[in-house]
Design a protein around this nucleic acid. Structure first.
Length: 196
DNA sequence: CCCTGATTCGC
DNA sequence: GCGAATCAGG
């Protein structure tokens, strides 16, 4: 596959939306995430920030990279050195789309085998909000569609057909997606043992 | 281990 | 220009 206009377009769009390189690669098909990233760089839109910013996983790395290759697979040539990078102040990036802060609380029929919802009053509002968001965009997969990589967070009442599993990509290792991990695994904070 | 993006460099 | 390999961080 080559980078046709349309494909580049999709790339730009998705990258602008904050999609990950791998996601974009999957979407486009025929390319790996490396290809996507490489293209992104060549297009000059490496960082999605731009405004004065604070790039979390980008900036501070730009420097010399003294490799000590134990695998002389390629002759370590000294490539042209990039002098000083000019932090262009371009603002061609599309404005982020803040979701409406709908505090829509959905009353769940409270089955029994509901996920470990630790007294839903001490969960950080942040996490809850996030979960609510997620449940809107969840893939809503069935039991049999669960895989090692799908969030296994159940939603709805198992007794009704209004039941499904989140199905989003799991956070890594964990059984839930990031959002659900947030409410499922509450750190042991705010749980002060006021007893006694 | 999974994932991310960043960089290098042979092609 | 392209992207695999690699690096570096979470």
């Amino acid at each position: 596959m080559s980078w046709t206009d349309e494909r580049v377009d999709v790339l730009k769009k998705m990258w602008g939306e904050g999609q990950s390189a791998s996601q974009i690669a999957k979407e486009l098909g025929g390319v790996t995430r490396n290809a996507v990233i490489g293209k992104v760089h060549r297009l000059g839109l490496s960082n999605r920030a731009g405004s004065g910013g604070a790039a979390k996983t980008a900036a501070p790395k730009a420097a010399a990279k003294p490799k000590a290759p134990a695998k002389p697979k390629a002759a370590p040539k000294k490539a042209a050195k990039e002098e000083i990078q000019e932090p262009r102040t371009e603002s061609a990036s599309p404005p982020p789309q803040p979701k409406l802060p709908h505090a829509r609380r959905q009353i769940i029929p409270a089955g029994q085998p509901l996920p470990p919802q630790p007294s839903a009053n001490e969960i950080s509002p942040e996490a809850l909000a996030k979960v609510n968001e997620v449940e809107k965009t969840a893939k809503k997969i069935s039991l049999m569609e669960l895989t090692e990589k799908t969030c296994k967070w159940p939603v709805g009442d198992p007794a009704t057909d209004q039941f499904w599993f989140c199905g989003l990509n799991v956070q890594q290792g964990k059984p839930y997606c990031e959002a659900h991990v947030g409410v499922a695994f509450q750190p042991m904070s705010s749980r002060r043992d006021r007893r006694r």
